[in-house]
């Protein structure tokens, strides 16, 4: 019939929020983001976020031999970066992959220390909260005199910005770009080199509802994965028709219902992944990553769940200026060592 259940659910949640029936976790996270000291849903202080980024820079050099950088509060950059803030706690490889792409392509970007969270729980709350959170995001872009919003690998953050910055972003709202769109465009333009078939494990791709259901981002990650993976297989159905991971609508944050969420709500996804025989499931969304990982765990699937940029980090054909040991320097070092 084309009846939009998401819209009905959203209006129902708004009414419930206004009469005071709101999940405690939602209230706490939104309060911290809008009125707390840290301005983000995970209550990560800016110094802790900066420490994490410095650690990731060192770790990337040690583990991957790549020099990356997380620019902070750079005025006049093209992009201000807003990942799901939980990525700073849980997804180091995704963030390193994001930074590696920006470094390799000479991307003009920055992280704003006043607001670095792409999550918008206002979408689950009311227009008032939704609007305040979007406005705060746009304010950070304007404070830094940047031009665009760059969202990390998060379906929820991407959709809430893409759909609502034009409404709540004031005059001339900044365009919203997902990091996968940026990476794909740079790769297609020849500014990003990726090694072909370097990922040997069988890989499948889960379409996050928030970016795929509308047909917004479905082909870009697939093209990249077909290039860098030796054995890429599709789930069925996929793209706009893909099944939800089972953790949508914020339910992924409710640990009390994990068993239901993974063995009932997530069973279809588990069956879908099992049929692919994949060793790696790419789920470029903070919510989906957590849910699909728990679905695999609770349904006895030995599958690693990661983001797209986790694999790009392994596949990037880095230019010399990014390498800790530039091509050719390794031989000289060996000769000197000998």
């Amino acid at each position: 019939m084309g009846i939009d259940h998401g819209l009905i659910t959203r209006l129902g949640r708004w009414i419930l929020a206004e009469v005071g029936i709101t999940p405690k976790a939602l209230v706490v996270a939104t309060r911290e983001q809008l009125e707390g000291d840290t301005h983000n849903t995970s209550a990560i202080p800016a110094p802790a976020m900066k420490d994490t980024c410095e650690f990731l820079e060192e770790d990337c050099a040690d583990e991957h031999g790549l020099k990356i950088q997380f620019p902070m509060d750079v005025e006049g950059a093209e992009y201000v970066f807003f990942p799901a803030v939980s990525d700073y706690l849980l997804e180091p490889d995704t963030l390193m992959g994001n930074a590696a792409v920006m470094k390799a392509t000479g991307g003009s970007w920055t992280i704003g220390t006043q607001n670095f969270d792409g999550i918008n729980y206002g979408l689950f709350y009311s227009d008032r909260m939704l609007g305040r959170i979007v406005s705060a995001e746009v304010d950070e872009v304007r404070r830094l005199k940047a031009r665009k919003i760059l969202i990390g690998e998060c379906g929820h953050a991407s959709r809430s910005a893409k759909a609502f910055v034009p409404t709540f972003g004031g005059d001339h709202p900044p365009p919203v770009v997902n990091i996968m769109e940026y990476t794909y465009d740079q790769w297609k333009a020849g500014k990003l080199k990726l090694k072909a078939s370097v990922i040997k494990e069988r890989v499948t791709y889960h379409d996050p509802c928030n970016i795929a259901r509308s047909g917004w981002i479905t082909e870009q990650p697939r093209e990249i994965l077909r290039h860098i993976c030796a054995d890429f297989v599709e789930m069925t159905p996929n793209r706009r028709d893909n099944y939800c991971c089972g953790g949508g609508g914020g339910t992924v944050s409710i640990d009390e219902i994990r068993k239901f969420r993974t063995t009932v709500g997530g069973k279809t996804k588990a069956d879908q992944i099992r049929r692919t025989g994949a060793a790696i499931c790419v789920a470029p969304c903070a919510n989906c990553k957590k849910q699909v990982a728990e679905v695999c765990q609770d349904n006895g699937l030995d599958v690693r769940v990661c983001g797209l940029h986790d694999l790009i980090l392994r596949a990037i054909d880095a230019p010399d200026f990014m390498r800790v040991d530039p091509v050719g320097a390794g031989a000289e070092t060996s000769a000197e060592g000998a």
Partner: peptide, 18 residues
């Protein structure tokens, strides 16, 4: 589908009005 799409395009001030 058109009704739903239009409905997702909120008036910016509706939250404040409520």
């Amino acid at each position: 589908p058109l009704v739903s799409e239009v409905a997702w395009h909120f008036p910016a001030e509706s939250g404040a009005h409520v």
